[in-house]
Design a protein around this nucleic acid. Structure first.
Length: 547
RNA sequence: GCCCCCAUCGUCUAGUGGCCCAGGACAGCCGGUUCUCAGCCGGCGAACAGGGGUUCGACUCCCCUUGGGGGUACCA
């Protein structure tokens, strides 16, 4: 009985994305379920795209999710070139691989030609003439190393698909194993490292299905054991129906910018001046679909066109953290994208998932990622979580959102706010609806539509109520929620106004908007002086002379 | 173009030939509760893509069509 060894092998090109996180989760679950090991390897063979920052972000996200890996020393492919070169040298010496000199342009031309002839492009070993070889060397043309893929049928059993996948002999081709820059290709790196690390189960995205044949051929040539393969479905964006991608956020902003220009009758130049980004840069971005705003530019543009963080689709794990989800809920939800324990069970702890996880209950069809259900899970989890978990969750959210006014709150204050916001969906929602409680007075801005609707409408009825209420509240000696309620209820009975007609003006005066925790509790939280000061300030700012 | 994978309510799914005129969850709709947002309570509508087989019997097995997705790199 050999133990299970799984791995997650991301390439460090940015924050961890949901698809990757699900792959990591499944590998982690399998390892934990079987008492095996879960290893982490960094596939940084693409020199142009890999960064050290990205590695840090990746590790941070994985830790946040609680997917702890078991290798104390991270495996970086970029640090293993000696090993790869030794093996490639052997392959070359044995005549199982060879150098090839075609340029990208030549290969492109061949591919186009094949497509025109309606057949697949297959690369097989070419013999170069002595003259050609001399010419290549003379002009110092860089070469790649290609593996001679033995021409035969390849087959393997896939656990998720539950069947044998076959590649017929005519589709075999000699693929590149070392690039001109001296780095191994993905195919070569995975095969060598999976074998070296003793990986027994490879769970990875479906986009790798056809790569598996290359990997098998290499394993056979190198005398490696074949791991068990399980290819996971790809998660789809419900809006586009395509693979979830980091680009989706940019798309959303782009769409909104178009709407904004149309409805507000603005141009891209207006946008550029408003957000302080060079007009050329923005024009280039808006006219070229493949261009993306970088992380620093996004918020500037979003602010102008009226988009908030919460409006963008979360794609990166970091986005979910910033938007105030529990990591355990995200894991639970991600697990359900393609796996089910069977029956009606959906909401589970990590421990329960570990207990119930099994490969043969993984689905092969591609799920569309549906945020509403995730939100609902988060809501229910928050409702059943104890104060400690809520507080630590809130603290974690605040750490990811250093600009929130709630960062100055004490634990006691946070606990009170959390208690007032029972029924919360996300921590961001708590933040957005409660941060006025801890903001300095002069940071409160009054939302124009709230002022209009709640204070000024009907001959400024709301504002009048505020003026009436001001002395009544000043008379409350013991400033508790219950006493405040008494005072206000008395006023309601006397004036025959509904509670809504009175509570809303106070809410606007105190928070600037129409959303807050229950109003009496909010006033108690702020204290008498702060409450009266805000009411005065509101009357002064909003009150009209003719009143 | 070529190769491959997939197919149950709008979405995620349960269902492994009779337990299913198909169950759950989210979303939706209707009603109730409430000072706002949320929440909560009660109710409703909603699917086996189509066509052939196999079988006493198909959501479940096979084939075709259609639809969706992925790959087609010196990216992983």
């Amino acid at each position: 009985m050999s133990t299970v060894v799984t791995r997650f092998a991301p390439s460090p090109t940015g924050y961890l994305h949901v698809g990757g996180a699900r792959t990591a989760l499944f590998n982690w679950l399998l390892a934990r379920h079987t008492g095996g090991k879960f290893l982490l390897r960094i596939e940084d063979t693409d020199l142009a795209r890999s960064t050290e920052d990205a590695v840090d972000q990746l590790l941070e996200d994985l830790r946040w999710l609680g997917l702890q890996w078991d290798n104390s020393e991270l495996v970086y492919q970029s640090k293993r070139l000696d090993l790869y070169n030794r093996i490639i040298g052997d392959l070359l010496a044995k005549g199982l691989a060879y150098e090839a000199w075609e340029t990208n342009e030549e290969l492109d031309a061949l591919r186009k030609q094949a497509e025109k002839a309606k057949r697949a492009f297959i690369y097989r070993k070419r013999t170069y003439t002595e003259d050609e070889l001399k010419k290549f060397r003379d002009e110092n043309r860089p070469s790649v190393v290609r593996f001679i893929m033995p021409v035969k049928d390849y087959r393997f059993h896939d656990v998720v698909l539950g069947k044998e996948i076959v590649q017929p002999a005519p589709e075999c081709q000699d693929f590149v194993i070392r690039k001109t820059d001296g780095m191994p290709t993905y195919h070569f790196g995975v095969v060598v490292d999976d074998a070296e690390m003793g990986i027994t189960h490879v769970l990875r995205g479906l986009e790798h299905l056809k790569n598996t044949f290359n990997h098998i051929a290499l394993q056979e040539a190198l005398g490696y054991a074949r791991p068990i393969y399980a290819h996971l479905s790809v998660m789809l964006n419900p809006e586009t129906g395509e693979k979830l991608s980091k680009r989706d956020r940019d798309r959303r902003i782009r769409k909104r910018v178009h709407e904004w220009m149309k409805s507000a009758k603005k141009t891209i130049t207006d946008l550029a001046t408003a957000c302080g980004i060079a007009p050329d840069r923005l024009t280039d971005w808006i006219t070229t679909d493949t261009r993306q705003l970088d992380l620093a530019e996004q918020p500037l543009v979003m602010k102008i066109v009226g988009l908030t963080e919460a409006d963008l689709p979360e794609i990166m794990i970091h986005d979910f953290r910033k938007n105030g989800y529990f990591p355990e809920v995200l894991n639970n939800f991600l697990a359900l994208q393609g796996w089910s324990p069977g029956g009606d069970l959906e909401q589970m702890s990590m421990a329960k998932m570990v207990e119930l996880f099994s490969l043969d209950r993984i689905n092969a069809s591609n799920p569309k990622f549906n945020r509403e259900k995730l939100q609902s899970f988060n809501t229910e989890h928050a409702a059943s979580a104890g104060p400690d978990r809520l507080l630590s969750g809130m603290r974690d959210y605040l750490a990811a959102n250093p600009d929130s006014p709630l960062n100055i709150a004490t634990d006691e204050q946070l606990l009170k706010i959390l208690d007032m916001k029972k029924g919360l969906r996300t921590f961001r929602q708590v933040d957005e609806s409660s941060s006025f409680l801890l903001m300095p007075d002069d940071k409160i801005t009054y939302a124009p539509d709230a002022v209009e609707k709640v204070l000024k409408k009907n001959d400024a009825q709301g504002l009048c109520a505020l003026r009436d209420l001001r002395p009544l509240l000043a008379n409350v000696t013991d400033w508790t929620s219950a006493n405040i309620e008494h005072a206000i209820t008395a006023y309601i009975e006397q004036t025959k106004l509904g509670l809504g007609k009175v509570a809303q003006p106070i809410r606007v005066a105190v928070s600037g908007g129409t959303i807050s925790p229950p109003i009496f509790d909010s006033l108690q939280f702020m204290g008498k002086d702060a409450t009266l000061a805000r009411i005065d300030r509101c009357i002064a700012k909003v009150g009209t002379p003719e009143m």
